[in-house]
Design a protein around this nucleic acid. Structure first.
Lengths: 206, 206, 206, 206
DNA sequence: GATGAATGAGTCTTCATTCAT
DNA sequence: AATGAATGAAGACTCATTCAT
């Protein structure tokens, strides 16, 4: 409808160290606030203020508020999930499966201290936003495929690996969430962990 | 959390049939819209309009927008989840466990066609709202306890029933969500279902 | 991209007297301010304030700021231009052509005390906005056609009436603007008027 | 109207060739963009970018955005209108008046391919800005005086030359605008041109 | 002179909530 | 009880202008 300048609202990828740090700060603060208070209860002015920048500069680095959220979740993925795979892939391969799963759970828990909330925000946002829905799905598929790949590399052969990995990830995520936030006071996490390890080992044995 | 006013804006519990239906309509429409588009993308004017009432009257029945959401989720629980337990409790007790689980999954799927989105919205909202967080937790605990109770009534005895039921519910919810929304194109749901039935049966056998 | 409610942002056509007056006040104030200071230097808060309404209510009656502008120009057309045709069509038909043109100029001047600025704002806005461009063009074509029609009714027959009317309107508009704003101090308006009457009469004689 | 700062932010008149070209580029780009999209839809970052300079340097040459606009219009006047007078003054004086007017129209059209939009932007801006209003008026008066002067030099003597030239310019401008943008599909430009030539010749004959 | 990152006031628009009728 | 017009605070985003480098 309106004739708008195309040059003005261009998003710059910062090249200089100062700018890169600034962008990173915006992402980190945005991620934290959105996890703490939810996407809709976090406003751009607040993000800017806590990141120590002006409201305007935010829009040099991001097209809009949603873009901060997406960048934050991706950054989370890059900085926490990806290294997680590294650690998994470096685990001693002679270890037995139960130990492997346990270590895996330990690793998941570490990266879950923040992720579950981001995860839940994404789920909620994907109801109303296709970009987030896509991001979320890609993220999930990717995680699954990576795990399946790692399993093959580690000589763990099983029928229907995709389905089983999907089930296992779901199990472990639920467990981690419960352990991290321990909302159900009466639950015994050691029992739950053992049970889940048993399930996963049993499932992968077929 | 909120101190309700005692003055003129007190919330009335409708006594007359017409009013009761009106309140119910608001809840139903609110629930549907919030599931479809998310809490924050649903506005009260829209709810009122689709429910066929004035915007003002909404605030005779509910203190605020959040209250509609909470009522809607509770109503969902009462109208869909609770009957689910009924149906579960009426299932033929001589049936073998695997069949029982399968039926259970079928029942869950039916009520999941709407619930998962409400569930996700609740999760997201619980980040920023303690009332919702409490509601959500109560809801979960309740479901777990009910299932444990039903199991006892059906003579299913197992160690650590709470933990196992929690795990089983998580498994089944994930499965239902996947089947209902089938976002992962490559997954074979029959395989997943069989696998999960096997897991739950195995787990409860101990 | 976002799922937005369709019910919420509906524009209501006010039915009650109070509302109709309110809408009219917004249009009038908006028109005046935009003429005085230009479209871009007039903000919606100011319009609302001067119209004695809240900023929010403006958006019950208008989709956006541009809509106020368009409504204002249309209202101007309805309230000033249209009655002008009335007066023209009621002019004594036995009058000679020169007198007719003179009266016409008089009538034009009366309605030009505001219109020229609106006209110029429209011209400027039509550079960047297609809706305004369309409105403006329709407005012009309409004026021309009406005048041609009135001429026929009054028995004024000439070759190429469209072109001549277009030329005549341009002449008269320029004259009116000059007379109303008399920016060129040295101009003698009586001479200009006589000259233009002579031109139009001469042109229509062929 | 504006009090220019005497401190560090003084506007420099560029002396070096490189700088002069840079300033010229800013003016040219600014003029083009403002004509295309309107003053308010053109931002300084865009002008700078298209001119191949930094946003900061713009403010070494111009006090503010409006200053670019004014410089651009003045430059337009100097570079297009002024040469137009040259060409007019070099036209063969033995030519008859009708031919002269026709050529004049041709020359006007050439410079109108851009100017009309600038003209309209100026008109609109003069509502809110006295500097522009003044510039615009001076520009008009100047054009009129120049034409009157040229007429005298060419031996064209008439009563009330100022008024007639003003009328003639208005006529020709309208015609040019119509021919250049030909928005009224049904108009026959040849007829319009002939009619206007006839009018001007007739008017100047007295 | 030159850069372009940074500022932050300003603007349009939305919407939960209230209140006169 | 019911209406729906009205409120006004809040928020995302823009952009002319400045300034450290």
């Amino acid at each position: 409808m309106e004739v708008k300048g195309l040059g003005s609202s261009e998003i710059r990828e910062p090249r200089q160290q100062r700018s890169i740090e600034k962008k990173k700060r915006i992402i980190d603060v945005g991620f934290r606030l959105m996890c703490e208070k939810g996407y809709h209860n976090t406003n751009t002015a607040e993000i800017a203020k806590e990141a120590g920048v002006s409201t305007g500069i935010v829009y040099n680095y991001f097209t809009d508020k949603k873009d901060i959220f997406i960048a934050a979740v991706q950054s989370y993925n890059d900085n926490l999930i990806a290294p997680m795979y590294d650690r998994i892939s470096k685990m001693d391969k002679r270890i037995d499966l139960a130990e492997l799963i346990k270590e895996l759970i330990g690793v998941f828990i570490q990266s879950h201290y923040i992720s579950k909330e981001a995860h839940e925000e994404m789920l909620a946002m994907s109801h109303s936003d296709q970009d987030v829905a896509k991001l979320f799905l890609d993220f999930e598929i990717n995680t699954g495929n990576n795990i399946v790949g790692l399993m093959k590399q580690n000589g763990i052969i099983t029928e229907n690996p995709s389905e089983k990995v999907y089930i296992a990830i779901g199990l472990i995520e639920n467990l981690c969430h419960e352990i991290v936030y321990h909302k159900h006071q009466s639950m015994d996490y050691e029992i739950m962990t053992d049970e889940i390890v048993k399930i996963v080992v049993g499932m992968l044995a077929n």
